[in-house]
Design a protein around this nucleic acid. Structure first.
Length: 666
RNA sequence: GGCGAUGUAGCUCAGCUGGUUAGAGCGCACGGCUCAUAUCCGUGGUGUCCGGGGUUCAAGUCCCUGCAUCGCCA
């Protein structure tokens, strides 16, 4: 079990009669790309948690927004031929508009270009500067003019910038630094004393291990000669603020820091949700910044992992980038929310695929929950005239009591797990009860009871128990699947609203006999699985930056004659096997049109069996080379993609339709 | 290179401080029911618990070592 050690009830915050408060945030998303699955996950988690806290009776403030300054934004805007302002307005809007279709309802959407944010950032910088925690110093490093940024040694390949293939220049630059090191000991102590400060524990350990080494001070500026799209430093107009002092402070400005009426009220209850890539800024920079400002640290930081997209199953139906809008269109908001919350152990990585989401939808939502709901309501219709029947007093037997007890246990476990971000466990608990209810129906056979006149009381009792159990299910499912839960309670004639809480409505026996039931349409119709060959839905990617890259590339052009040197042909795979000692390599036998053997480094992305019969593009006039002992006569072409999370994958290049093997590509 | 995490049924994963025949869900096979969304219920099989060594009366669970994957750091 998630158990008593990690799950601590909110006794530290709760005092009888006092309304608890929750302030929960997503990161502000950088507007250099459109929203994708990773953004959607963070935001869904945050929304589900905020709904859960509301269900607990909390006064909740949920904030998300966009991060809009920096060099990359200027570049992106230039590439589109618009001003940075126009550019960020557009992308920010696409974030803001991405959430409502997912039933995500933030209370506030903040933008770092908001005037009030800019003002407060400057006030804070001035304060920290005045107290001596910001100083001017020289910084030297390897600067790539193509990238317009400093590179680390690690990034270099053979001493060159990996993107521009030129050596970076060693340059020195003067900048302002935040005296972060000054607060290192305090931070270590704070993390040690507050086990919940950074969760899950693995990330807390990671931070502590990082802090065991001396902390460097944080560079917080960029000279205006290099960057103008930023917040000017109030004490030196030759510089603008560099990312973190601008971005992190959104958590304060969004609730009216320093003297807004609600600031302290919410800040004392602050919790942040982030993906692991921005752990360090949130776990180290941010608390030390707050310390310097004189604001107490946030309460909890919740760190989640990445979604690995299962290419082989996914790419064909949806395309490369998984856009929240597409997901909602295909599966509906409830299913997407349920899937991501159920499938990922919070903190760990998980994999996403179209098949997985359809399987969850069909087995968990359609078969288990939807069908349970449908069969129960139908029976109440048939045997009780569409009205919640009255249970016979004293007629609860052992099976009934076991079920009711299980529901109570479920609510407690659900609370504990939702509160500690163990959403998948919370949902497991709920589905254990759903399984019990399906068994309960089979055990009691209401359709048999209905045939025996003197069993009517028992029949009505069984039906009442079902209806009341469903009412409780619809209550606990509200944070996860708002639409479906609302439909459920509506069908049961129950009026849940903003004032409804787990305490007020999560008790057995509150469903009033006599309430009219109105079975609606199916909650979750079953979905068909995508067939492997279904490539019709492939659509151009609106977020693609392909165009920019091409137009920007002046150098490195080749003559047509050079291109002609390549002999690219369509090859049909007739056999494929893994090369034993290698993780990456597959040995393929292809027809082009003569048979030949090629070795391709695609084993992580394609199973040998699925390749047989497929047509790929191959460079046929490459010098043979031996790889892991196998001689390769040609090279298979594939697209190499790196998503914003840094995951790489290969997708085989192919032709649009069936072609005679050996056809030349030109 | 340093530190850490992970490696358990076809798939996704549970297995706390070592203790009888190693678990769940999905998938698969067979059987049952008919209230229900071709749904539900029951039964069933498979696992060298990554490899090797060790500690112990006893190890998936502890120690050492190797391999693989991932993360953080340099």
């Amino acid at each position: 079990m998630a158990g008593s050690q990690t799950c601590r009830p909110q006794t530290d915050r709760r005092q009888d009669g006092i309304i608890m408060t929750t302030y929960i945030t997503t990161p502000i998303y950088y507007v250099n790309a459109l929203p994708h699955l990773g953004h959607a996950y963070t935001t869904i988690v945050t929304d589900a948690y905020s709904r859960f806290r509301r269900l607990c009776g909390d006064d909740v403030r949920f904030q998300t927004g966009t991060d809009e300054h920096g060099e990359k934004i200027v570049q992106a805007a230039e590439a589109e031929g618009v001003s940075p302002r126009e550019y960020v307005d557009r992308i920010s809007r696409s974030f803001r508009e991405a959430w409502p279709p997912l039933s995500v309802e933030p209370d506030h959407f903040i933008r770092t270009t908001d005037p009030s944010h800019i003002q407060t950032v400057q006030d804070i910088l001035q304060q920290v500067f005045d107290q001596g925690d910001i100083y001017f110093s020289e910084y030297s490093g390897l600067y790539c003019q193509g990238c317009e940024r400093f590179l680390t040694e690690k990034e270099l390949i053979d001493g060159n910038c990996p993107d521009h293939l030129k050596p970076p220049k060693e340059i020195a630059e003067q900048n302002y630094f935040f005296r972060m090191s000054k607060y290192q000991d305090w931070l270590i102590e704070h993390i040690r004393k507050h086990p919940e400060f950074i969760t899950p524990e693995r990330y807390r350990n990671e931070v502590l291990s990082f802090l065991s080494e001396p902390l460097e001070d944080l560079c917080i500026s960029r000279p205006v000669s290099r960057l103008t799209w930023g917040i000017p430093l109030p004490f030196d107009r030759n510089f603008v603020t560099y990312v973190w002092f601008d971005a992190l402070i959104n958590y304060l400005t969004g609730i009216g820091y320093p003297d807004g009426p609600d600031f302290e009220h919410y800040w004392n209850a602050a919790e942040h949700v982030i993906a692991k890539d921005i752990l360090k800024p949130h776990a180290i920079y941010w608390p030390t910044m707050l310390r310097a400002i004189g604001v107490p640290p946030y309460r909890r930081l919740h760190v989640h992992g990445y979604w690995n997209v299962d290419e082989t199953k996914m790419s064909k139906s949806i395309g490369n980038v998984i856009q929240p809008g597409n997901l909602v269109e295909q599966y509906g908001a409830d299913t997407v929310r349920y899937f991501v919350l159920r499938e990922m152990s919070f903190g760990l990585d998980a994999s996403f695929s179209g098949n997985a989401i359809v399987e969850r939808r069909n087995s968990d939502l359609a078969n288990d929950l939807g069908n349970l709901f449908s069969r129960a309501l139908t029976m109440i219709g048939k045997y009780a005239g569409n009205v919640v029947p009255a249970p016979a007093k004293g007629l609860y037997n052992d099976v009934d009591r076991e079920l009711i007890n299980a529901l109570e246990v479920m609510i407690a476990q659900y609370r504990l797990n939702m509160n500690t971000f163990n959403f998948h466990r919370a949902l497991q608990e709920v589905w254990r009860v759903i399984g019990m209810l399906n068994r309960y129906i089979v055990t009691n056979e209401p359709w048999e009871l209905a045939k025996i006149p003197d069993q009517e009381k028992r029949l009505l009792t069984v039906l009442y128990i079902l209806a009341e159990s469903l009412r409780i299910l619809s209550l606990v499912l509200r944070p996860v699947m708002p639409e479906a839960a609302a439909k459920m309670s509506l069908s049961l004639g129950v009026d849940f609203n903003e004032a409804t809480t787990l305490d007020s409505h999560g008790k057995w026996g509150m469903l009033q006999p006599g309430t009219e039931i109105s079975p609606g349409p199916q909650l979750f119709p079953r979905l068909d699985k995508k067939k492997p060959g279904d490539e019709k839905n492939q659509q151009p990617q609106p977020g693609s930056r392909m165009g920019e890259k091409q137009s920007g590339q002046q150098e490195g052009l080749i003559e047509y004659g050079t291109f002609q040197l390549l002999d690219i042909r369509v090859a049909e795979v007739v056999a494929a096997e893994k090369i034993q000692k290698s993780e990456r390599l597959l040995k393929l036998t292809v027809k082009a049109p003569e048979e030949r053997t090629v070795v391709a480094g695609i084993a992580p992305y394609y199973a040998p069996d699925e390749l047989i019969g497929s047509q790929v593009l191959m460079v046929t006039n490459l010098k043979p080379a031996k790889l892991m002992g196998v001689e390769s006569h040609g090279m298979i072409l594939a697209a190499k993609e790196k998503d914003s999370d840094g995951n790489e994958r290969l997708v085989l290049a192919t032709v649009g339709g069936r072609v005679t093997p050996g056809s030349k590509v030109k």
